[in-house]
Design a protein around this nucleic acid. Sequence first.
DNA 1: CTGAAAGCGCTTACAG
DNA 2: CTGAAAGCGCTTACAG
Lengths: 345, 345
Amino acid sequence: MVTNRSAEHAKATIHDVAKLAGVNASTVSRALGNPGRVSDRTRKLVEDAAAELNYSVNWLARALPTGRTGMVGLILADITNPSYFEIIRGAQAVGAERGLTLVLAESVESGSTESLVAQRMQSSTDGIILASPRMTDLDIRALNGHKPVAVINRFVEGIDSVVPDVEAGISEAVRHLTSNGHQKIAYLSGPEQSWISARRWDTLRSASAWSGRETQLIPTTTPTMEGGRRAARDLIASGATAAVCYNDLLAIGLMQQLRAAGVNVPDDLSVIGFDNIFGSDFTAPALSTIASPLKACGAAALDLILAALSVPDQSRRQLTSRGPSALRTTLLVRGSSGRLLARTG
Amino acid sequence: MVTNRSAEHAKATIHDVAKLAGVNASTVSRALGNPGRVSDRTRKLVEDAAAELNYSVNWLARALPTGRTGMVGLILADITNPSYFEIIRGAQAVGAERGLTLVLAESVESGSTESLVAQRMQSSTDGIILASPRMTDLDIRALNGHKPVAVINRFVEGIDSVVPDVEAGISEAVRHLTSNGHQKIAYLSGPEQSWISARRWDTLRSASAWSGRETQLIPTTTPTMEGGRRAARDLIASGATAAVCYNDLLAIGLMQQLRAAGVNVPDDLSVIGFDNIFGSDFTAPALSTIASPLKACGAAALDLILAALSVPDQSRRQLTSRGPSALRTTLLVRGSSGRLLARTG
DNA sequence: CTGAAAGCGCTTACAG
DNA sequence: CTGAAAGCGCTTACAG
């Protein structure tokens, strides 16, 4: 198969339409953009000419004078990680609805490349959403200088933030574990630069302390299944009978390695994940997890950008929730957590 | 928390840099863009000024005269579907490497909205990748008029196409099933407009016929887990003892419903999926599936765009492969398929 | 090597 | 209601 994509008719511009319709280019612009600021007759004329020439606006060119690109950037730490898919979906859904398209980029878990990518995106987007940012508060605030920025899973002073309420889900989890006889709870942590991981750990620790339970931090190398597998040894050595993980990927990898090591879940050890990602209910046993309203977070972040765009120089909001709300986390008890059997001591 | 995002210093332009450096704007442009076409001394001058003003190029403005936006569009049928994640990853990876960023959009399985979205994207991207397109060949060719287009999972005459070789995986699957005693094989189909689904069905049918096996098409409503659940009844009624599914989502949903109906997989019925998506090995039993090199497809598509961009008006290529190659499909036998036990008869 | 000019495709006050 | 002009921030022949 051999074909040529010839130059054909170069794309029609506003001037071609103007010539065909017998009006000025500025009139074409108005007829197409602000109908109502033009007579019905000329609007019809222009529309017909545009249709005949198969004209469609050049969004890039429009963006230069207006300053509006119609795109919003979404930067993720790792495109591979299914936790982000729901965030993408949520943002994409409200974006599509409001005529905005998403521009995707990835920081590969690095604060500096995140900074770079964000800077590059800045000129071609109307705003940027940072999902689980790895860059410093300072850099984030600097970014916010020219175009609105919204962050997910982190509070940054002066920046629109959407953070699900972790407390609800974590205290449910602690209650669930304590009522099932667990005395020592481990936390498989996320990346060092992750604000939300620190937050989850703090919350878990205080909730456990409040119930008189011991707790231990188990560091991990990466927030992936591989990271979970590698942390299994430390977990077993810790003597904890339950593990709450920074995310489901860690939890799933952990379960794989535990099984390989002959540790039964949940009889010997309870495992609880975070996020309720796609597939977390496929595992055997199905993974208990603290569901995070990821989709709602994505949607909320886009809403914040939209709001900042329509009312510029306004005070920033921070979205989260106490009590029943779209942004609460909740515990999903499935098969991987429960009463301690084998190693009760 | 209340802060204001003040106007601050409006973003520095090339003219600000020019003034500070004491040169003409065109010189700044050259110094920053084509170093070498400028004296070392002025280059240094310009660079210092740019650094002092924290100047960074406006990509939008640059795109207008050059015609290069630095973005490539990727249109998916359904962002929700994990099958696409690897395509995104593959494209994203080579994009990042070559300084291109991905713009994402979704057609929600509709040819007409796909067309619309593609048209809108056209002006702000250097090229467009259609992953499993739902639009007509005609529309795709029209799209290709101005900017390069590449399609994945479909052959379109005159358009760069990347299609994994389905035959390898499907004939492996048929061999696997026949050697395990299956006489009748069903195919749970994908969307009507899906070229690749038709292709898979054709291939399955002829491979089965060649082995003297019967085959039957089972239509589905949507290529999702829900669609798989809904197709279970028809499958059971069909009398087939093995089902090959258009994708893993269908297969996983199907397995859920079969279990609910008391049908044992794989003893009563073998199930084989397509794609090897994330989580397909979490199921119990783990899903046998025909792995598609999705990531390689995404990367290949981006490569084709890049090639078309660097050598314009060239003849189009169609990537696929016979024999050992990055674009072959292969059968992954896991727990959901095997020898017929219960209903052998 | 560098400056001045024209232009990329659009929008938007400003007159009339 | 409509036209002519200026401008968005950049690039790139064209002179010199």
